[in-house]
Design a protein around this nucleic acid. Structure first.
Length: 420
DNA sequence: ACGCCTTTGAAGTGA
DNA sequence: TCACTTCAAAGGCGT
C-alpha cells in the first residue's frame, strides 16, 4: 500500500510528518447496485449512509435467524428480525442505538461534508408500495419526481469537498462557516451550552455524535447524553473504550462525580453540565480517536482538509498546527469569552466558556491547557508515547481529580502508537 | 445486470 | 410542522 508523507505540524520546533495512506472509505458502494449512480459520478466514490440501530441489529441477527429457521431469503429474514426488534426492551435496543451513534460519529469524521442528501434519489426507481398491488394515482407523480431527481444536473448535486478529494484538488467548501449552514447531520452533534447565542456568535457545534432524538431515549448510551452516572450504571454494553474514555472525562471534570450527579432526577444543572462536559469538543474528539484511530489518521487529506475535519483535534495532538494548516472556513473555532483563570476553573467551566468567534482565531491557550491536562491523564492510563513529547502537566488548583475508579479500565487500543 | 422484496430508523423533501 | 420518500443491509428471485 502506498503511503505519502506530509508535514502535519511542529513538535518542540521540530517538523512532524505523518504518513498518509490514501485508503478509500470502507463504506464505498458496490458497483453492482450503483450503476446508475456510477454513470453520473463515474468512478467517484459513493459514500453510504451510516447504519442505524436496526440495521446493526439486522446485521447481527441475520446469520442467527438463517441458522435457526433455515431460511435464506432476506425479505423473510428481515421480517423476523423486525419482529424480534420490536420485542426488545428499550435497554436492549439502546445497545444498538449506541453503536449507531458511534458509527454516525465515525462516519461524520471521515466525511465531514457529507449528508444523506448526497445519496438522495441516487437509487433507481423504487416505489415503496405497502399496499402491494394497489397502483395509486400518485404513482406517476412519484415516478416523475424520482425521474427528476435522477436527472439532476451535476451542478445540482455538487459533490461535497469530501468527494472532490478523490479526483480533484481539494477545494474549499462553498458554504460559509456559519453553523446554520452546516448539514443537519453535522449540526446534530453538540451544542455547547451556556454560550453566547447572538447572531454574530452562533452556538458552537462540533463534530457529530448523535441526533437529538436519541438523547431522551438512549441516555445511557449517548456520549452526549444526560446523567453520566446513569451511563455507568445502566450500560453494561458500554465498551471498554467508552468506559476508559469516561474515566478520563470524569477525572477531567470532578463535577461529573460529585454527589449531585448520583441522582438522575436531581437538579437541572445536572443534565446541563453533564451534557456540556460529555459533549465537549475534547471528549468528542477523543471519542472519535478511540473509535477509529486508524481511519482517522490514515484518511487525513490535505492539511486544510484535516483542519476542517477536526479543528478540535489539534489541541490533543502532540503537534502544533502550522498556521497554514488552519482553515478559516467551515470550522468553528473556539476561544474563551473572557480570560479565564486556570487556577479557579475546572475544565468543564473552561469548555463552557468557549464560543465560536466570527473570524479565524489562533488556538485558545486555555483550551490547549485543558487538552494538555487530558493528555497527562491519558498518559497515566497508557504510559508511553506522549510522555516524551509533552511537558508533564500537573492538575491545576481546582482540577483535583477524584479517586480513580477501579472499575475503569485503561483503554485497550494502541491508538497512541499509531501516531508514531 | 439489476430492481424488488422486507424490516426500522434517520434524514431529506415538499406542501 | 407534517406526511411522505429515500436509503442504509442482504440475498434470492424475477424481468
Amino acid at each position: 500500500m502506498r503511503q505519502y508523507v506530509r508535514p502535519v505540524g511542529e513538535l518542540h520546533d521540530v517538523p512532524v510528518r505523518d504518513f498518509v495512506v490514501p485508503a478509500p472509505p470502507s463504506n464505498i458502494s458496490t458497483p453492482k447496485k450503483r450503476k446508475c449512480e456510477a454513470r453520473q459520478y463515474e468512478d467517484r466514490l459513493y459514500i453510504k449512509k451510516p447504519p442505524n440501530a436496526f440495521m446493526l441489529y439486522l446485521k447481527e441477527q441475520r446469520p442467527k435467524v438463517m441458522a435457526e429457521l433455515n431460511i435464506t431469503g432476506s425479505a423473510a429474514i428481515n421480517a423476523v428480525v423486525g419482529k424480534r426488534w420490536r420485542s426488545l426492551s428499550k435497554d436492549q435496543q439502546a445497545k444498538y442505538f449506541d453503536q449507531a451513534e458511534t458509527e454516525s460519529c465515525r462516519h461524520a469524521t471521515e466525511h465531514p461534508d457529507w449528508s444523506t442528501k448526497e445519496n438522495y434519489g441516487k437509487k433507481r426507481k423504487r416505489t415503496r408500495n405497502r399496499t402491494s398491488s394497489t397502483a395509486s394515482a400518485s404513482e406517476p407523480k412519484q415516478e416523475a419526481q424520482q425521474a427528476k431527481r435522477l436527472c439532476v444536473t451535476p451542478a445540482q448535486t455538487q459533490p461535497s469537498s469530501s468527494y472532490s478529494v478523490v479526483k480533484e484538488p481539494l477545494k474549499q467548501p462553498q458554504r460559509q462557516p456559519t453553523v446554520t449552514n452546516l448539514p443537519h447531520q453535522q449540526s446534530a452533534c453538540v451544542q455547547l451550552q451556556n454560550t453566547q447565542t447572538t447572531a454574530d456568535a452562533p452556538v458552537c457545534q462540533v463534530n457529530p455524535v448523535l441526533p437529538a432524538s436519541h438523547m431522551d431515549f438512549s441516555a445511557s448510551a449517548s456520549l452526549a447524553s444526560s446523567a453520566p452516572v446513569q451511563l455507568q450504571k445502566q450500560a453494561p454494553f458500554v465498551s471498554d473504550t467508552n468506559e476508559a474514555l469516561l474515566s478520563v472525562v470524569e477525572q477531567l471534570d470532578p463535577l461529573l462525580t460529585s454527589e449531585q450527579f448520583q441522582q438522575p432526577s436531581s437538579p437541572l444543572i445536572g443534565p446541563q453540565l453533564s451534557q456540556t462536559s460529555l459533549a465537549s469538543p475534547v471528549y468528542c474528539a477523543l471519542s472519535t480517536l478511540y473509535a477509529s484511530p486508524d481511519t482517522f489518521f490514515k484518511n487525513q487529506k490535505e492539511p486544510i482538509g484535516f483542519a476542517d475535519i477536526q479543528h478540535d483535534m489539534w489541541p490533543i495532538l502532540p503537534v502544533t498546527p502550522q498556521p497554514d494548516t488552519l482553515s478559516c472556513s467551515n470550522t468553528p473555532k473556539y476561544s474563551p469569552i473572557s480570560p479565564v483563570s486556570l487556577e479557579n476553573s475546572s475544565p468543564s467551566k473552561l469548555l463552557d466558556s468557549f464560543v465560536a468567534p466570527t473570524e479565524c482565531q489562533p488556538m485558545s491557550p486555555v483550551f490547549s491547557e485543558t487538552a494538555k491536562y487530558m493528555m497527562s491523564l491519558l498518559n497515566d492510563l497508557e504510559p508511553g508515547p506522549f510522555a516524551q513529547h509533552l511537558q508533564p502537566s500537573s492538575p491545576q488548583a481546582g482540577w483535583s481529580s477524584p479517586e480513580s475508579d477501579q472499575s475503569c479500565r485503561p483503554p485497550n487500543h494502541s491508538f497512541l502508537q499509531t501516531l508514531y
